[in-house]
Each structure stands twice: as structure tokens, then as C-alpha cells.
């Protein structure tokens, strides 16, 4: 088998205040896979995400991104490989214009001039926001800001795109538009979400993280229809939603 894009082994982590968030997480994601990371609030999902690009470093266990171990020395390369889109686009967008913001990441990688412009244009095209390049981010709608936030990371040409709650606070139209964009991207995807229909729509595989360990890993439709697991880990489908019928209609 090929080298996994994401190879997490025995990852354990406790915060400085003693709160243990992860108790030995094992997770492998291969090239081209789309994986939903599900779990109740406080399961350790965000903590896990912050380990993937080295914002937090493993207390025990290891994280490898296409074979490269996450360490202090290769942080820059790790952050190029792992693109994290945070839940609140306002945390991510802080430059005067959309263009400047999308250019921020690749510029940190040392890219300049025409290539930088091309990357910015390309990333904005992928999320359908090219015509907004000269607008200040805080004048955009929330859905548009979320799309620009995705572009800021795509411009770094990551090997894996990690999205934290991509559908939160979006209206149904913006939610569907983002789904269309994400479906069209040719990138490995790890999506942290509470939005189970969204997970089924976008990801073939789902992983459930609960109390700091992986408790389920399989085809999304199987995970969502496993009532015992779902109930045990505070996962609930929206009223009237039938994963099997939705899957058949995909």
C-alpha cells in the first residue's frame, strides 16, 4: 500500500492544566480519500486537528504527513502539506483585501511575483470568488468569507485539506454551494463536523472520535446507521433523515 497522507499513531495529549484530551489516537488517511471526523463536543476533535499541522506537538505517539514526521524542525513544510480551515473565517481573514489574504500563505512559503498571482487567481477560481479579489473580507457575507478561507489554504497547494465545521452558520444555499465546491476539489479531505448529512454527502468514510479515542471507523452510511454506536457517543441524526435513502439518492 502507498504511504498514507496522514498517519497518526498512538497520539496522546494533555493540556498544561492537566486536562487529557487525547488517549492514543490511531488514524490513517490515504491519498484521495474524503474522511469525516465525527464526535460530540469535547471529544478532542479540535485538539487532534491542531496536532496535524504541528500547532500542538504530540506528548506521546506520532503524526506523519506523507511520511514526514511532525517536528519543530520541519514545521514549515508540514504546514504547507496540511491546510487547516478554521471554523470562524474571521480568525483566518485579517488582511485588507481578499487577494492579500489568499496570498499570505504562499508568500510565507517564499513564493513571489507571477507565480504568487497565479496561485491566488487559481485558488479564488476554485471557490468561485475571483471577482471579489479586491474587496475587504469583512464586507463579504459569511458564506463568502468561509469560501475565501478555503481559498487561503488551497493557495498553499496542501496535500490534505482539513476543515473544521465547514457547514456551521451557513444558510442552506451557502451550505450547498460549499458542498459543490468541496466535491469539485481534487484533494484529500478530512472534515470535522457535527453535520451528519453533510458528512454523508461529502465523505465516503467516517471516523468517530469520543473521549479522546477513535471508537468507530468505516463507510459513512454504515457508521450513521449503527444505532448503538451513535447513541453511545451522543451523535444524533436530524429529524426524519434516513442515511440509507439519502445514500441511494446520491
Amino acid at each position: 500500500m502507498s504511504t498514507p497522507v496522514l498517519d497518526v499513531r498512538g497520539l496522546a495529549f494533555a493540556y498544561a492544566d492537566g486536562h487529557q484530551a487525547l488517549y492514543g489516537v490511531d488514524l490513517h488517511v490515504h491519498r484521495g480519500e474524503r474522511v469525516a471526523l465525527l464526535g460530540p463536543n469535547g471529544a478532542g476533535k479540535t485538539t487532534l486537528v491542531l496536532h496535524l499541522n504541528g500547532i500542538l506537538t504530540a506528548a506521546r505517539g506520532s503524526v506523519r504527513v506523507t511520511g514526514l514526521q511532525v517536528t519543530r524542525q520541519n514545521m514549515q513544510e508540514i504546514r504547507r502539506r496540511v491546510g487547516v480551515v478554521f471554523q470562524d473565517p474571521d480568525d483566518q481573514l485579517f488582511m485588507p483585501t481578499v487577494r492579500d489574504d489568499v496570498a499570505f500563505g504562499p508568500a510565507n512559503l517564499g513564493i513571489r511575483g507571477d507565480e504568487l498571482d497565479a496561485r491566488v487567481a487559481d485558488a479564488l477560481d476554485q471557490v468561485g470568488m475571483r471577482t471579489f479579489a479586491d474587496r475587504p473580507p469583512h464586507h463579504l457575507s459569511f458564506g463568502q468569507r468561509r469560501r475565501v478561507a478555503v481559498a487561503t489554504v488551497l493557495a498553499m497547494r496542501p496535500e490534505i485539506l482539513v476543515l473544521d465545521e465547514p457547514s456551521s452558520n451557513l444558510d442552506p444555499a451557502a451550505r450547498r454551494e460549499l458542498a459543490d465546491i468541496l466535491t469539485g476539489l481534487e484533494v484529500t479531505l478530512l472534515m470535522v463536523t457535527h453535520d451528519l448529512p453533510y458528512a454523508l454527502q461529502l465523505c465516503d468514510r467516517s471516523v468517530v472520535l469520543s473521549e479522546g479515542v477513535i471508537v468507530a471507523d468505516g463507510a459513512t452510511v454504515d457508521v450513521l446507521t449503527d444505532e448503538a454506536t451513535m447513541r453511545a457517543h451522543r451523535l444524533e441524526l436530524p429529524f426524519g433523515f434516513d442515511p440509507r435513502r439519502a445514500q441511494a439518492g446520491r
Binding site: 504546514r79 478554521f86 480568525d91 485579517f94
Partner: peptide
């Protein structure tokens, strides 16, 4: 959170050249 989001895009706060970025974040 803004600091984490900056660093996730490869930004390293060192030297004079990082000041404009930090200043924009402040703004």
C-alpha cells in the same frame, strides 16, 4: 485563535519583517 490561524499558513513571527503582519492582525 488568529495567531494559530496565521501560523497554520506558515507564518513565523521573527524579525522586523513580521511586524506588518502582526500589525494588520492587531488592526
Amino acid at each position: 485563535r488568529m495567531k494559530i490561524a496565521r501560523e497554520s499558513r506558515g507564518f513565523q513571527a521573527k524579525g522586523l519583517r513580521s511586524w506588518p503582519v502582526v500589525a494588520r492582525s492587531g488592526g
